[in-house]
Amino acid sequence: MPSTATTNARIDYKAFQDIVPEIGTGMAAISHALRKSGIEPDLIEILKIRVSQLNGCAFCVQYHLNDARKLNVPAAKLDPLAARREAGIYSPRERVALDWAERVTLLASHHIDDETYTRVSAHFSEREIAFLTMAIGQINFWNRVAAPLRFTPPIPTGS
C-alpha cells in the first residue's frame, strides 16, 4: 500500500496552544521546576533531543536543538547524539542519564531493573533522579502530541 505520509501540519503548534492553553500552563510549571532543580540545563536539553530522536518527533528535535544551541552546547555533543554510545565524548554522568532516558522512553521494551537504577543513582541523587524522570516524561508527552499532529519544526537558530 503506498504511503500517504506528508509533512504538512495537521494542527499548527500555535493553534494547539490556543485550543488547550492549560497544557502550556502546566508544561511551563514543569519547565520552571526543572530549571530550579539544579540539574545542568545542557544535560536536560541533550536528554530531550535524544528522547525526541527515539520517538521520531522532528518538531521537538529541532526545538531542543535550538534551545541547546542557545545554551552553547557544543556541536560535538549534539551531532553524534543518535550514535552516542560510539561517540566517546559524553561524561559518565551524561552517559548514565542518556541510558536512563532511553530506558524510561522505551519502557515497554526495556524493563528498568535494579542494576539500571543503581547505575543512575551512582551519579544522581534521589532528588535529581526524580527531576530527570520528570524531564523525560515531559518530553515524551510533547513527542506524543507534536508528532501525530505534525507540528512544523521551528526554524533553526541562526537561520
Rank of each mutant, 00 (worst) to 15 (best):
M1F: 11
P2D: 15
P2E: 15
P2F: 14
P2Q: 15
S3T: 14
S3L: 11
S3F: 07
T4V: 15
T4F: 15
T4I: 15
T4Y: 13
A5I: 12
A5N: 10
A5V: 12
A5H: 11
A5T: 11
A5D: 12
T6W: 03
T7P: 00
T7H: 06
T7S: 05
N8K: 10
N8H: 10
A9V: 09
R10N: 13
R10A: 14
R10I: 15
I11A: 11
D12N: 14
D12C: 13
D12T: 14
D12P: 11
Y13H: 05
Y13G: 00
Y13E: 01
Y13P: 01
K14P: 02
K14L: 11
K14G: 05
K14Y: 07
K14H: 07
A15S: 09
A15E: 07
A15K: 12
A15Y: 06
F16H: 04
F16Q: 02
F16R: 02
F16S: 02
F16N: 02
Q17M: 05
Q17V: 06
D18W: 09
D18M: 13
D18E: 12
D18V: 11
D18C: 10
D18P: 03
I19Q: 13
I19G: 12
I19K: 14
I19N: 12
V20S: 14
V20L: 14
V20P: 09
P21C: 09
P21T: 09
P21F: 09
P21K: 10
E22T: 11
E22I: 10
E22C: 04
E22H: 05
I23L: 11
I23N: 04
I23P: 02
I23Q: 06
G24R: 03
T25W: 06
T25G: 09
G26L: 05
G26A: 08
G26C: 05
G26N: 05
M27A: 09
M27T: 11
M27W: 05
M27K: 04
A28S: 05
A29T: 03
A29F: 03
I30E: 02
I30Y: 01
S31N: 10
H32T: 04
H32A: 07
H32D: 08
H32R: 04
H32I: 01
A33D: 07
A33M: 05
A33W: 03
A33V: 05
L34T: 00
L34D: 01
L34Y: 00
R35W: 00
R35F: 00
R35A: 00
R35V: 00
K36W: 03
K36S: 07
K36D: 08
S37K: 05
S37P: 01
S37I: 07
S37L: 06
G38L: 08
G38M: 08
I39W: 03
I39E: 02
I39V: 09
I39M: 03
I39S: 03
E40Q: 11
E40L: 07
E40R: 09
E40S: 10
P41F: 00
P41D: 00
P41N: 00
D42I: 13
D42L: 13
L43H: 07
L43K: 06
L43I: 08
L43W: 07
L43Q: 09
L43F: 08
L43P: 06
I44W: 06
I44H: 04
I44S: 05
I44L: 12
I44Y: 03
I44T: 08
E45N: 13
E45T: 13
E45W: 11
E45L: 12
I46G: 13
I46Q: 15
I46K: 15
